[in-house]
């Protein structure tokens, strides 16, 4: 009987967690597939069966999600964010970011700041009126 940790599902999950942890580094999928004891073809196929997207798409998605977080929560420059999430050029980062979010990184950050500002001034734009009233927040 094969143990839980030898199961194909566990090996795919482990590889996904590896991508989560190391998405900022130069990740080579053929190395990950070898570590997971799959051929690259079977690795990509099984990953897609479980997560609905290929590992490459997942890696890009993960990097963009991290970039969104840094744009919203940090004051790092866009090029610093680009390199810190694993992209090798600002132009490829900006192109992909816009394709995914519909906005370039600068505009995304600007929108986030404006949203924060608006909520601070007028909580009711984000908080349902009944809750805002109970928490003693003013409509602005």
């Amino acid at each position: 009987m094969i143990s839980e940790k030898q199961q194909p599902v566990f090996r795919i999950v482990k590889s996904k967690l590896f991508i989560d942890e190391n998405h900022a580094s130069a990740i080579k999928l053929n190395e990950i597939s070898r570590q997971a004891h799959f051929s690259l073809y079977h690795y990509i196929r099984l990953f897609k069966v479980i997560y609905g997207i290929t590992p490459h798409q997942y890696l890009k998605e993960k990097r963009i999600e991290k970039a969104k977080l840094l744009l919203a929560q940090s004051e790092l420059s866009i090029s610093d964010i680009c390199y810190s999430v694993g992209f090798e050029s600002v132009s490829s980062f900006t192109t992909l970011f816009k394709a995914v979010t519909g906005l370039n990184p600068r505009r995304y950050r600007q929108n986030h700041l404006e949203k924060e500002q608006k909520i601070a001034e007028q909580p009711l734009v984000a908080i349902p009126g009944c809750m805002a009233e109970k928490y003693g927040l003013k409509a602005g």
Binding site: E4, V9, F10, I12, V13, K14, K16, L17, I50, Y51, G52
Partner: peptide, 14 residues
């Protein structure tokens, strides 16, 4: 979740 076994393994690992 579309795949309970995978999600279970992942969340347990976390």
């Amino acid at each position: 979740t579309p795949n309970l076994e995978a999600t279970y393994q992942e969340l347990k690992a976390k």
